[in-house]
């Protein structure tokens, strides 16, 4: 087993969901934020790039549909994994995440010699996932209200429109800042990672990287291998995709990790 051997971290479904998500997200931001800051001269320039506010509105709603599809894809896929019995709850927050945050900040401040030992996902990766989960919930909900205001007041009080406008506008700003500052730092600008973490394209990371960044997951993988491809969690060994990849003589070895 070479340290440069690759381990599948994101299978093709997750990568596709991510691509659908971020392309629609970027288009939604570029068509939506100029409306939020309509008073700024630069907003009008942006709107004209889209061919005016009417066109921007159409593009915005189209991108929203793509985003909703990516979410539905994700949830249906997770459901399918549960049904097949290969769902593993690695993304669920746990007490260990709080503990890791505390330990990591101690490490940052020089109060601990090394960072905590992370599992498959660090607490900041889980934060990203659940921030998007919450964000989508707010944005799609409020967005649909604003898309169909006449229908909304048929079933809800009039102030639902006011709330939806505030929620859509403010949550959008929060999401945009979180993605373009926080997520971009963690996956692009961080000196260790620059220019980017390629996993969103390749889906794989090396065993060395896995050992460095996610030591507990690395140990779990080794244990699994030692037990002869018998997953400790009772999950069937070797995803079809990983098998196929190995048969093709691909570089991806090791089993896929279930989310």
């Amino acid at each position: 087993m070479d340290a440069n051997d690759k381990v599948l971290r994101w299978n093709i479904h997750y990568r596709l969901q991510h691509v659908l998500m971020f392309t629609s997200f970027i288009i939604l931001v570029l068509t939506g934020i100029p409306l939020k800051y309509a008073g700024l001269g630069v907003s009008r320039v942006f709107m004209n790039l889209w061919g005016g506010p009417e066109m921007a509105s159409t593009v915005h709603r189209t991108a929203a549909v793509v985003m909703i599809i990516s979410c539905a894809y994700h949830l249906v896929y997770l459901g399918w994994r549960m049904w097949k019995g290969i769902f593993s709850p690695d993304m669920i927050p746990s007490f260990k995440d709080l503990r890791d945050l505390y330990d990591n900040i101690r490490f940052y401040l020089g109060l601990a010699r090394r960072p905590p030992l992370f599992g498959r996902f660090t607490y900041w990766e889980k934060f990203d996932y659940w921030a998007v989960f919450w964000g989508i919930f707010i944005m799609v909900g409020s967005g649909l209200v604003l898309w169909f205001p006449v229908e909304t007041v048929r079933f809800f009080p009039v102030w639902a429109l006011g709330i939806a406008k505030v929620a859509h506008s403010d949550e959008a700003l929060l999401a945009a800042l979180a993605i373009f500052i926080w997520h971009f730092y963690n996956v692009h600008l961080r000196p260790e990672i620059f220019p980017m973490n390629w996993v969103w394209i390749t889906g794989t990371i090396t065993r060395r990287e896995l050992k460095e960044k996610y030591p507990l997951e690395y140990e779990r993988l080794r244990l699994q291998e030692a037990l002869g491809a018998q997953r400790p969690t009772g999950i069937p060994p070797q995803e079809p995709e990983a098998v196929a990849s190995a048969k093709r003589g691909g570089t991806e070895s090791g089993s896929e990790q279930g989310i």
Binding site: I105, F107, Y108, L109, W124, G162, I163, V166, A167, D170, E171, L173, L174, L177, A178, I181, W182, Y185, R190, P191
Partner: peptide, 26 residues
């Protein structure tokens, strides 16, 4: 709702930027 999102956005972004600063320094 406006107040809620103002506090949420301010708090979250402040926390995240602090975390970035600490990470960068380390």
């Amino acid at each position: 709702a406006e107040r809620f999102f103002a506090v949420l956005t301010g708090g979250v972004i402040l926390g995240l930027v602090t975390h970035i600063g600490l990470d960068l320094a380390s």
